[in-house]
Design a protein around this nucleic acid. Structure first.
Lengths: 180, 180
DNA sequence: GTCTATAAGAAGATAGAC
DNA sequence: GTCTATCTTCTTATAGAC
């Protein structure tokens, strides 16, 4: 892996662990094993590097979701597979956690990948639900499902335990199966 | 309002707007119209002031929720009143947004109010659901409801629009009413 | 109680040598 | 491409006068 690549993956990790405001260029350089000159040669500055890292994380999240939601099985099966997929719950969502960052939200360039990722995910889930022919509005139900995941991360971090995340997922799945 | 009080409310505002990592003592002093000496006279430092501000915000959130969830009406009515209460959605939840802050989660003192608030809220909702005698597990359903709110905030901020929050709330209410 | 002075260290770069 | 030096501003206080 070359230096630019190591800088991007280090930034992805740090953004997830500490957010944008909490991540310094110095910390990125140290984790990537790169010097200052190196970082400023490949990227114009912290926002530029963050943009690359966030786009990368967004693409990864999308690929994973697409794989599970486009698989074989009933609509509910696929939604359940997505909700129950393995995650580092206590670390938080690499994309969702950035929505709390004031500097991310203030920058159209940095916020765009978040907006696009969640819009795509809600659309994809709405599609799956429509195929399932459930007696539910696909658009609002899709928003609910994504919100349960994002809120589950929040509750888990507050409790320093995966339990509330798992409970929230169990709860929404019971509701969905009841409506099926 | 005296100086200590103004320091606390200014810190509450800044924690909600910029999080703990993104809030400096200087910014707090300026918003409160207090000097450095004044702040360090009333509080030992930033963590001490944050503790006071977070406890205050937690108590306020609890009082508001308790009022709506303990009101007259069916279980679903009360849950709906709580979900649809007026909120500054785009600002985020004063408590939930702190769950993403690495320094908050790393400090048992600062994380405790978050943990206690969400534990209390889930318990209160589970109580309401139990009274409603719905065919749903009260504990997991309560976790789902709180998660929808917290996730709704995340989606709204990512989209810079209240729409996904409202959709997530509509979706979970439709599911709850379907199960009633 | 509040004010001003001082300070060590981090943040976020830029400049120029190699 | 990478390294070291330099720079300004911010952070998070402490010290002591008023």
């Amino acid at each position: 892996m070359d230096t630019a690549e190591r800088l991007i993956t280090s930034t992805q990790e740090l953004l997830r662990e500490r957010g944008y405001v909490g991540t310094s260029p110095k910390a990125i350089q140290q984790r990537a094993g790169a010097g200052q000159g190196s970082m400023y040669h490949h990227f114009t500055g912290k926002p530029d590097l963050a943009r690359a890292a966030i786009s990368r994380s967004a693409a990864e999240l999308r690929a994973l979701a697409d794989q599970l939601l486009s698989a074989e099985g009933t609509a509910i099966d696929r939604v359940e597979a997505y909700l129950r997929r393995e995650r580092d719950v206590l670390l938080g969502c690499p994309i969702g956690r950035l929505a709390q960052d004031p500097d991310i939200i203030a920058s159209p360039e940095l916020r765009a990948p978040l907006d696009e990722t969640f819009a795509w995910l809600r659309g994809k889930l709405a599609e799956v639900l429509t195929e399932g022919e459930l007696r539910l509005d696909p658009v609002t139900t899709a928003a609910t499902i994504v919100a349960v995941l994002q809120g589950g991360y929040v509750l888990a971090r507050a409790a320093e335990s995966v339990e509330p995340f798992d409970q929230a997922v169990d709860g929404v799945l019971a509701l969905l199966k009841g409506a099926a």
